[in-house]
């Protein structure tokens, strides 16, 4: 969502493809326009609301439950430097 918002902002700022009055607006107006674009888009959704709930729930399960509880990056967690990580892997691969 944040990426999408930022990208849309950059895109509209660069291409000015929406309507003829956009070029008169300053930055805040552009931000507002994008905000309304998304707000109206979400408001008009039907099945999309269910999908967004699924996406948010899924991201929560993936990044908060699964990633934090079950899937640490072992080398990042257990070793402070790349040299230590390389040393560990070297010993693992030659034992």
């Amino acid at each position: 969502m944040i990426f999408s918002f930022t990208s849309i902002f950059l895109l509209i700022s660069l291409l000015k493809l929406t309507d003829e009055s956009l070029s008169k607006y300053h930055t805040m107006e552009t931000v507002k326009k994008i905000w309304f674009f998304y707000r109206d888009g979400f408001r008009e959704m039907t099945v999309g609301k269910t999908l967004w709930m699924i996406i948010l729930l899924k991201l929560f399960i993936f990044f908060v439950v699964i990633k934090l509880l079950f899937f640490p990056n072992l080398l990042s967690r257990d070793y402070d430097t790349d040299a230590d990580r390389a040393d560990h892997v070297r010993k693992e691969l030659t034992k």
Partner: peptide, 29 residues
């Protein structure tokens, strides 16, 4: 397309989690 995209999005990220935890020697190598 939107339904499929929404449900499928980010399912691939799990594979990257597995690289870091289950396959750390591989990830580094």
């Amino acid at each position: 397309f939107g339904i499929n995209f929404a449900i499928g999005v980010a399912t691939g990220i799990i594979l990257e989690f597995e690289f870091g935890t289950n396959w750390s020697n591989y990830s580094w190598f």
